[in-house]
Computed example of a mutant assay.
Amino acid sequence: MIRAILRLLLAVFYAFAGVMHLAEPAPFLTIMPSAVPWPEAFVFWTGIAEIVGAVALIQPFHLKLRQAAGIGLALYALCVWPANINHLVMDLAREDGGLGLAYHVPRMIAQPVIIFWALWAGEVVLRNSAPTYKS
Rank of each mutant, 00 (worst) to 15 (best):
A56P: 06
P37C: 03
G97W: 09
A74M: 11
F42I: 04
S34W: 06
A93V: 01
D96F: 08
A41M: 14
A35N: 12
L73Q: 00
L75G: 15
L75Y: 01
F61N: 15
A93R: 14
P82A: 02
M90H: 14
V105P: 07
A49L: 11
Q59V: 10
G100Y: 09
A77Q: 00
P37K: 08
L92S: 10
G97F: 00
A49I: 01
L99E: 06
R94I: 09
L57C: 06
W45N: 05
A69F: 03
V43L: 08
W81R: 03
D91G: 12
G97P: 05
G98A: 05
A102Q: 13
L65H: 11
P60Q: 12
V36L: 10
G97T: 02
A69G: 10
A83T: 09
E40H: 14
A41N: 07
G98H: 04
V80M: 13
R66K: 15
G70Q: 14
A69T: 04
A41T: 10
H87N: 12
L63I: 11
D91W: 03
G97Q: 01
L63N: 02
L65D: 06
L65F: 14
P33I: 04
N86Q: 01
N84Q: 13
H104T: 10
W45A: 07
R94S: 10
I51Q: 08
V52Q: 02
E95Q: 09
L88C: 09
A102S: 15
G97H: 08
W45Y: 15
L75D: 09
Q59S: 03
L92V: 11
I51V: 15
Y76F: 15
I71K: 09
V36Y: 04
E95G: 07
V89M: 07
L101H: 11
W45C: 03
G53R: 05
P39K: 13
H62T: 12
G72I: 08
V36A: 08
A69D: 11
V80S: 06
A68N: 06
V55R: 04
W38H: 08
V36R: 05
H62Q: 11
I85N: 01
K64D: 06
Q67G: 00
L99I: 07
G53W: 07
L101D: 10
P106Y: 02
E95N: 02
L92D: 00
R107T: 04
M90Y: 00
G72H: 01
A83H: 01
H104S: 07
Y76D: 02
L63T: 00
P60M: 03
P33H: 11
G72C: 01
L57M: 12
P82Q: 03
N86G: 12
A93D: 15
E40G: 15
W38Y: 10
L75S: 14
L57A: 04
V80D: 07
P82T: 00
P106A: 13
A69S: 15
F44Y: 15
E50G: 02
F44D: 03
G70L: 04
A41K: 01
V80R: 08
H62M: 00
Q67I: 02
E95I: 02
G70C: 01
L99Q: 11
A41C: 04
H104R: 06
L73N: 01
C79Q: 14
Y76H: 15
P39Q: 09
V80K: 05
R107A: 07
V36G: 03
E50I: 10
L92H: 06
E95C: 03
A77L: 13
P33M: 05
G98Q: 03
F42V: 12
D96W: 00
E40Y: 14
H87Q: 07
L63S: 14
G47F: 06
N86A: 14
L99M: 14
